[in-house]
């Protein structure tokens, strides 16, 4: 069977930073593999270790700068990687979930995987919608926010737990093929071994343009436009008590009594 894992290079922003247009000034960002995707890759690699004949393929949308990050997944055990990029794609432009899903779906149609794993969301723009959009574009089943997966490949069913709010998990059976969006904590992602890092250098990382996946620039048309980026106003309106611990605690005790605490 084949497992396709969508991965994304994300940027983390320093505590102190400057905004440059609609993005963060490059001097204040660090690129890394999206945390949720690390769990998705680990889940796929574990499947390939526990079942026979599982191929793990990663797919990303990103410029050539992202290759180093993408190789992290190869170093951890993915078999090969696909990177979609095109001159028509702008480095800084925000892609909405439908657009991302269109590109990923075109790759999925070529690869025809049995299972697609995505992260629940990306750490930078946190849209959280690409995986389910992808599933519906492909016409496959899906499950969002999965924190346990037990795959019955023979029966063609994924038994999953979905992490609902408030300490409740939903137990669901999902027919394959399917897209599962993977939550952090589902497993314990491994570190790449030195051997894995060496091997990753020789694994296939195929670059595909829009034309290569059967699309043209109209696939990027989106009615959504990012218009501003700014630092939110600080909400720091806290009244801070000052003085010795006895003094500050005394004032706080008075406040709590006023609010009816302990009565």
């Amino acid at each position: 069977m084949k497992v396709l894992v969508t991965v994304k290079e994300v940027t983390a922003v320093d505590d102190e930073f400057e905004i440059d247009g609609l993005g963060i000034d490059d001097r204040y960002v660090t690129a890394d593999l999206n945390e949720w995707d690390e769990y998705a890759v680990e889940e796929a690699v574990q499947l390939s270790e526990s079942l026979d004949d599982v191929e793990v393929v990663t797919v990303t949308i990103g410029p050539s700068d992202a290759e180093e990050t993408i190789r992290q997944a190869l170093a951890k055990g993915a078999d090969r990687a696909i990177r979609v990029w095109d001159d028509a794609l702008d480095d800084d432009a925000m892609l909405d979930p439908a657009t991302k899903a269109r590109l990923l779906a075109a790759v999925a149609e070529q690869e025809d995987p049995d299972l697609i794993l995505t992260g629940v969301q990306s750490a930078d723009d946190s849209l959280g919608a690409t995986g389910v959009t992808l599933a519906d574009q492909l016409g496959t089943e899906w499950a969002a926010v999965v924190n346990a997966l037990d795959l019955d490949a023979q029966a063609g069913v994924a038994h999953v737990h979905r992490e609902l709010e408030g300490g409740v998990e939903e137990l669901t059976d999902v027919e394959l093929p399917a897209v599962l969006t993977i939550q952090t904590g589902i497993n314990d992602p491994r570190y790449a071994s030195l051997r894995g890092i060496r091997q990753a250098q020789s694994k296939e990382l195929a670059e595909k343009t829009l034309a290569d996946i059967g699309l043209d620039a109209t696939a990027l048309d989106s009615p959504i436009e990012q218009t501003a980026l700014y630092e939110p106003e600080s909400e720091g309106g806290a009244t801070l008590y000052e003085g010795t611990p006895e003094e500050t605690a005394g004032e706080l005790a008075g406040l709590l009594a006023e609010r009816g605490v302990g009565q």
Binding site: A129, V132, T133, D136, A144
Partner: peptide
């Protein structure tokens, strides 16, 4: 998040 993207699509 489990149905809104599918409806939008």
């Amino acid at each position: 998040l489990d149905y809104a993207p599918a409806v939008a699509n």
